[in-house]
Design a protein around this nucleic acid. Structure first.
Length: 181
DNA sequence: ACTCCGATTGTT
DNA sequence: ACAATCGGAGTA
């Protein structure tokens, strides 16, 4: 699974929500697995739930969930059908539509470094849960080709269980990368 | 039915 | 350091 999280670095996100065009390059991701990953939403006593069900579905689907009662987080489902797997999009650099992105963020900076900030900058909320990322209004497309030496690896941020697992990937020196608190 | 708390962010 | 804010998951 970590392979996909790594491969998503450099991918281009194209949002055409609300009649605005915003393009961003993914520069920070985290991989989450199935029931064996204690930090994953798929690790519940009851298995499949209403919230995590998309994680078991086909790859390329957007899994959006709300956190702390106020922010949205974007995941790309990355496993084969029947095996729960997803990659959290944690940060991006805005390439096109910086004005629209900044307006959605109400002028706050950083604009798209951090999962909640990225979702807000792109104009994405829970209504896009289950969306196919090959189609508008939110699509994934080829972007940067990255030198492997430009990619860093670390533990995952903001979780308690299995936080030290090396499943966070980021583009070194990118301003779109969030920072641990 | 009820409690606990989170894959966060902004302000003090 | 602390508040904001609320629904999912498990039963404290």
């Amino acid at each position: 699974m970590e392979e996909v999280a790594r491969a998503l670095l450099g991918a281009r996100l194209i949002s055409t929500l609300d009649g605005e065009r915003v393009e961003a390059v993914v520069v920070e991701t985290e991989a989450y697995g199935g029931p064996d990953d204690p930090a994953s939403h798929a690790a519940t006593v009851s298995g499949v739930t209403e919230r995590n069900r998309l994680m078991w579905g086909p790859a390329g689907i957007l899994y959006v969930y709300r956190i702390y009662g106020m922010h949205w987080c974007l995941n790309v489902v990355t496993g084969r059908e029947g095996e729960a797997q997803a990659v959290l999009l944690r940060g991006a650099e805005i390439l096109v539509g910086e004005e629209a992105a900044s307006r959605r963020r109400e002028g706050r900076t950083p604009v798209a470094a951090g999962p909640g900030r990225l979702a807000q900058a792109l104009g994405v909320d829970g209504s896009l849960n289950g969306h196919d990322l090959r189609e508008p209004p939110l699509a994934l497309a080829p972007g940067w080709s990255l030198d492997p030496a430009a990619v860093g690896v670390s533990g995952r941020i903001g979780i308690r269980e299995a936080a030290e697992w090396p499943l966070r990937f980021y583009v070194r020196r990118s301003a779109g990368v969030s920072r641990p608190r």
